[in-house]
Each structure stands twice: as C-alpha cells, then as structure tokens.
Nucleic acid binder design. Structure first.
Length: 571
RNA sequence: UGGGGCGUCGUCAAGUGGUAAGACACAGGACUUUGGUUCCUGCACUCGGAGGUUCGAAUCCUCCCGCCCCAGCCA
C-alpha cells in the first residue's frame, strides 16, 4: 500500500510576506540573506495551525535560499517537557521539513539572556519591582485609563543590580519580586506599560533542571533569541501584533547589532473543529477523544493516524494562502486535498463494511476462480492483482433495496447489476428472517458469459457493486470518522453552553465484522488504500495487526448517490 | 468608550489608479466496470456603507458601520 515520501515544493503563489522579503532582497537588506524560524513552546502537540506556520517558515527559507531554524521557546518550566519536544520534532519531520541541524532552545540562552537583562539594568532601563502580581495589575491601569508608576520604579541602578543578582541566587520566593522594563506606564499600548521581563519560579526545568529559579518572559526572550540566531524575518500570528512594539523596544534599548523584523499573519481556523491548545487539552483530559493522536483531532499526529498524508497537509497549507484577515477555512478543502493526493496514489481494494450474503445459485458448489482487478485506474504502473471468487459472496447491505426509489442503480429483486471485475448477477429471491423480517440472504443467478464484467451481447447494467468472496474474505474492524463537532464554529458558544456540548456523537462509528479481500488481511500499519466505492482508509498505525486489520476512514469518496437520494426522498 | 489590526463570490484568496485571477463549494452536461476520477459549462456589472478626487477607483481622500487583538509574574 502507499507510503509518502514526496519532498515539499515551492508553492508558486504569492502573499504579502513574500512581497516583503522580495523587497528586502531587492534593497539589499540583510545582504539578501533570509532566515526564519518555527518557534513552538514544547507544552503540547502540534496541530494543523502549526502546520500552516511550519509550511510558511520552512517554505520561505527554501524559496529564498535561506535557512529555517527549529527553536523551542521553553521559558515556562511549569508546562514544558521533553515528550513534547520529541513529538514536535517527529511531526515537523513527518511533514517533510528538515531544520538541517539548526535546532535551538531558548533555555540554552538563559545565561546570555541574563546578561542582556543586566545590561538593560545598567542602562537604567529595567528595575526590580516588589509589587505583588495583584498590585501590578492594579497599577497597570485599564484599556482607557493610564497606569501609575510603581513605587520601586526609581531604584538606583546599583540597587537593581544587587536585587537582580539576589533574584537569580534564589534569595526570594516565587512572586516576591520581578524584573520590569522601564518604558511608559501611560502608553496607550498596554504591552509597553513596564512589562515583566523576569519572574521567579522555583520550578524544575526539563532541560536546565534546578540551575535557574528566574525565568525570562516571552517578550524578552523571543526578540533576543531571533537576534542571536540571525533571524531576518520573525513571522508570528496576529495576536502578537501589539507585542511588536516591545520586540522592537528591547532590541533598540540594547542596541543590538541586528534587528529582525516581526511580521504577523492570521492564524488558521477550520470549520467544524477547534484549534486552540486549551480546548484540545480539554478534549484529551476529559476523555472525549482517546488522546492527542485520536484520528478526529486536528493535531498533526491525529491526521497522521487518520490517514492524511504530508503531501495533502502541505497542499492544503499552500492553497489557504497567508494574509492578515481573520478567516475560517472550510474543512472540505482539507478533505479535497487528501482525496486529490490519494486518488493518484492509493491502491484500490474491495471491502464490505456491512455484509449481506449473496448465494449464486447457478454457480457450481466448491468451485473457485481468481479474477483480475486493477490496482489503480489512475496509474497503470501500479499493476493488477487477482481476487478470489466463489459461490457465496458478500455485498454491501445498502447496495440492495427491496423497494428501490427512483434513480437507485443498485441491486433489487429481479434486477441485474455487475460485480466489479466479475460477473453480472440477477437477484432472483430474497431470503428474510421469519420473525424480524430482516433480509438475511439474496439468492442470485450469475451470467457466466459476463466474466470480467462485460456482456458479449452488449447489454448494459446501471450499477457496479463491490464484493468479497465469503470463504476467502478476511474479517476486519473499520472505524468511520466524521467531523468532531456538529457546529461549523464550535468556538462560538451560546449562553450557558460549553464548546464540548457541540461534540458530534456520531464522530466515531466502529464497525466489527467487516469483510475485506484477502490481500488486505496483512495491511501494513499506516498504509493507505481506497476501498472502492466507499472511501480512503488507513490501516491504524497503532492497533492494526497482521490477520486482525483495523482500518480508519481517512475520507469518504464523493457520494453523488447520497445527494440524489436526498433529493428523491425530498419529493 | 484608549491603542493596534482587519473587511473583495457560500468559504479561502489574488489584485498595489487602467476597467474583478485562481481554488474549494455549488449547479448543469459529457465520459465511466468505483453514482469515484477526468473533461466541459455556469457561478462578484462589483469589492462593508455613504460621499469625494480623477478621463478612469476594490486600489487615493473623508466620514460612518462591523469584526478581531491587548489590562498573565502564559506564549
């Protein structure tokens, strides 16, 4: 079955960031050099919103002959761990990107950052504040009212130097004091009202252990990390727009030799799902999903397990574009990208999800034969395989209707259809359970002259059904996934409701007792395929076993009949 | 109602004073041994609204309206 290995290609389309970079190169800024970075905090798993950022940053570097760094923004020891670092690396690699050894950790800069903080104090631009967190909030003012200066704001440089050293030395408890930038408590931009630069946390850090008890804040760390790494374009999402003034202030105050440019773009929103880390954590912790890699999750690991390919995710990221307008992308586009990719590459198989037994009454008992089936009509180089056929087969329950509506092309009493790659069959008799009335078996005749699927007399049938030979088919478990939420925008919560109220109860349907053609019995975990007429599936990477395959539905095929059926029914 | 942003087809999104790309979705049709794929056709006389400048405005100006972000010792 198909596996993925195609490397990323430049996208060809344009966006405002490319235009900025092109202008910078044209003007000789940074000597024409381009360096970007993808800077996740290792406190959770990556989701498709991160994929947008990864494709953007690595894509830009590739397109302009630059480098893209992978940097872990690990300045909050309470939430971070190596487990997350590893999963993030795995996901970035799986997406097809290579940081070429340029992996950095903000925590590796703690000493340098400390020195920068000392330098700021020496310049009279930072001070140690003994106000409590509550007091600081109080002094900050509001959106419409200016803040007030802290009573500790005018401490001498010497005193601040000593105090900051003592902070580092562990002489204060958590929250007792902080280091603040001395900017402007009346600034209309609240970010600039003497922001906190360092806080005290007597907490073990997953990399630096107990070495530090003071940790730098994002705004202080990020710009300096970018600067030290020689990043030219520091691309982040829109909510950091107000922070840009502080980014520039820190680098300006320290008179750093270079000054990366922060550029913001709109984060991704996807219909029928949530993309905020907080909400994803809640889904995992409350057991609403089975974990970060539940195939319904919009995480990279969830999509991987669902059967999405890196190519499909990258194609999606290319197509959605990069702009500054808040937007919500139709999840249908993501599904389209997967189908587009898998249509070309996924080998086809026959699998019957809800079996209905069919006995071919005129087919000799005990006889078996093998029929040739094409592996992928889109790609002749993928060849063909042989599929066993016999007197008893299974077809899909929904491919038979005793009383078919208009435009139903499938099997019905007295009607003739084609079994794919096999024979025409005609339904002669319907066997029902005498008590429940449920159809338990169809007795059909087959036309031996139609072997392979064509009638020598030229007669046509309207429907072609997939099937498996009852004696040869392998049992399988199949998991059908649908949108995790019933609402297009589950983040928009009504009064008195919670976003989890909108979880789609039908987002997972587990089907036992499915029957798949024998060649699927030992499907390699993680491999992709198409079940003809049904959809694209992936052998579950974690739980599928040789002989006991488990398949996840990655996406349905377009179902024109479902649309028609709705219309027919509506009349 | 402080400051910073953003409003172009149902959804994304190009467009940068010269007369509205493309994609998804949707609707028709052709082909078809997957009601799949593919192919063809249609789908914004108008760019949040109102004025103004101009021979000419989605692009420039003015006012208005709507939405998003910021008051963590999170990132």
């Amino acid at each position: 079955m198909a596996s993925s290995a195609t490397p990323p290609q430049p996208s060809g389309s344009t966006n405002f960031i490319k235009q900025i970079i092109e202008a910078d190169i044209a003007s000789g800024k940074n000597n024409g050099r381009v360096a970007t970075r993808f800077p996740p905090e290792p406190n959770g798993y990556l989701h498709i919103g991160h994929a947008k950022s990864i494709c953007l940053n690595f894509g830009l570097a590739k397109e302009f002959g630059g480098a893209c760094h992978l940097r872990f923004d690990d300045t909050d020891p309470a939430k971070e761990s190596m487990e997350y670092v590893e999963s993030i690396q795995q996901d970035v690699r799986w997406l097809g990107f290579d940081w070429q050894g340029r992996r950095f950790f903000a925590s590796d800069y703690f000493e340098a950052l400390y020195d920068f903080a000392v330098s700021l104090i020496r310049r009279g631009k930072a001070y140690v504040d003994h106000l409590s967190a509550d007091e600081i909030r109080d002094y900050r003012g509001t959106l419409t009212a200016p803040g007030r200066n802290s009573p500790y704001r005018e401490r001498s440089i010497e005193e601040n130097m000593e105090l900051f050293q003592r902070m580092r030395a562990g002489e204060f408890r958590d929250g007792e004091c902080v280091l603040r930038a001395k900017i402007d408590m009346a600034s209309p931009n609240i970010v600039l009202r003497d922001p906190t630069l360092y806080r005290i946390k007597h907490v073990h850090h997953y990399r630096t252990g107990g070495t530090w008890c003071i940790y730098p804040m994002y705004d202080f760390t990020h710009c300096l990390s970018d600067m030290m790494e020689g990043i030219t374009h520091s691309i982040c999402t829109l909510e950091f727009e107000n922070n840009r003034a502080l980014y520039d202030w820190v680098l300006g105050a320290l008179e750093t030799p270079c000054h990366p440019q922060q550029i913001e773009f709109a984060r991704l929103n996807l219909s029928y799902t949530v993309l905020s880390k907080r909400k994803l954590i809640e889904l995992v912790e409350r057991g609403i999903v089975s974990g970060w890699d539940d195939p319904r999750m919009p995480t990279i690991s969830g999509y991987r397990r669902r059967g999405y390919t890196p190519e499909a995710l990258r194609s999606f990221c290319d197509r959605i574009g990069v702009a500054r307008a808040d937007s919500t992308v139709d999840i249908g586009l993501l599904e389209h990208c997967l189908r587009e990719d898998l249509n070309k590459r996924a080998p086809r198989f026959m699998a019957v999800l809800q079996p209905l037994k069919v006995t071919l009454v005129n087919y000799p008992e005990g006889r078996e034969e093998e029929l040739e089936a094409v592996n992928n009509p889109e790609d002749p180089s993928m060849g063909s395989r042989r599929v066993p056929f016999s007197r008893e087969i299974y077809i899909e329950r929904e491919d038979f209707l005793e009383d078919p509506p208009r435009k139903f092309f499938r099997l019905a009493p007295g009607r003739e259809v084609r079994l794919r790659y096999a024979y025409f069959i005609r339904c002669e008799e319907v066997v029902k359970d005498p008590t429940s009335g449920e159809v338990t078996e169809l007795r059909c005749t087959y036309d031996p002259t139609t072997r392979g699927g064509d009638a020598p007399d030229g007669r046509r049938v309207q429907g072609t059904l997939h099937w498996v030979s009852a004696a040869h088919a392998a049992p399988a478990e199949v998991r059908l996934y649908d949108h995790l939420f019933m609402r297009e925008n589950p983040g928009e919560v009504e009064e008195g409701r919670h976003f989890t109220d909108y979880v789609n109860p039908g987002s997972l349907k587990v089907l036992q007792g499915c029957r798949v053609e024998p060649s699927l019995a030992n499907a390699a975990p993680g491999s992709h395929c198409q079940f003809e007429r049904i959809g694209y599936f992936c052998a579950d990477p974690k739980e599928s076993r040789p002989g006991r395959p488990v398949f996840n539905r990655s996406a349905t095929l377009k179902d024109t009949w479902a649309k028609i059926a709705k219309q027919v029914k509506g009349r």
